[in-house]
Simulated scan of single mutants.
Amino acid sequence: MIRKKYDTMEQAVADIHDGSTLLVGGFGGSGLPSKLIAALVEQGARDLTVVSNNIGAVSDGVAALISNNQVRKIICSFPVGPHANDLIDRLANGTIELEIVPQGTLAERIRAGGAGIPAFYTPTGAHTELSEGKETREFDGRVHILESAIKGDYAFIKAHRADRYGNLVFRKTQRNFNPVMATAAQVTIAEVSEIVELGDIDPESVVTPCIFVHRLVQDDAPHGEVFANE
């Protein structure tokens, strides 16, 4: 396995191109890969489609990308918060597109993307505006709507510890959307608090195996050192 070491965190996001689909882990501030997002704000890729449970505050999270005019479309469950007025203005003038997805459906669409399942039926959202324009089918007397899988070009995730191969351990509520997003992207970049040697992590504690992780960022490293599996 070829390994590359980057001198700065910014280099880990340098190849993210305009028009990319980006999966961003986290639930509120828990498990949010905020330093990777900050690096992408500086990098400046535009016309992004961003998939995240929620948007965050104006200066943090996905909202920072929106405020910097980098997002073309946002797919999320919870778009309200301190940034709401800015988002409403952008929706009104057509500079951003918003797709609201029920939280469980969002998680399953991402999981399906990682598992190679193109679509699935769910009763969630049936008979509401969320079902408009979608195929429906009845199962056991209930109407279900067809939801398509979500896959990303890149995923930003946050974990507590990794070995240098990229096996990940999450701390408590960091284990939200992060593990499932790691499986559904072409390139997964993990922001972690600690990188340890091989054998220092009990295999039974590994949540996300290294096969899904392409780059590691140690968020408290003096120079934002980045290791990558390419």
Rank of each mutant, 00 (worst) to 15 (best):
P82F: 05
G104W: 05
F177Q: 11
G25E: 08
N53F: 01
A39R: 04
I55L: 06
R215A: 09
P33D: 05
A112P: 04
K73G: 06
A162E: 09
A92C: 03
R175G: 07
E147S: 01
D86F: 08
L146A: 08
L65I: 07
Y121W: 10
T8I: 03
K151P: 00
G104L: 14
C210E: 10
T208Q: 10
G114H: 02
E138C: 09
A155H: 02
G116L: 02
V58Y: 06
I55N: 03
T21A: 15
G113C: 01
R72G: 11
L98C: 05
I37E: 07
T208Y: 08
F78A: 12
V80K: 02
R111T: 12
S148Q: 11
R171Q: 14
L130T: 13
L146G: 06
L106T: 05
K35E: 15
N69P: 00
K4Y: 11
V187W: 00
V41F: 01
E10W: 00
A107S: 11
L87H: 04
F120D: 05
T21N: 15
P79S: 10
P179S: 10
T183E: 07
G56W: 05
E225H: 10
S148H: 12
V101C: 07
E129S: 12
G31T: 13
G19V: 09
V13Q: 00
L198R: 13
V143K: 13
G152C: 08
G133E: 12
D86V: 14
F139Y: 15
K172E: 15
M1N: 09
T208M: 06
R46Q: 14
G125A: 08
G152R: 04
R46E: 01
R109E: 02
A185N: 02
V192D: 06
G141N: 11
F177P: 12
K35N: 13
I37M: 05
V24K: 05
L198Y: 15
Q186K: 06
A64T: 14
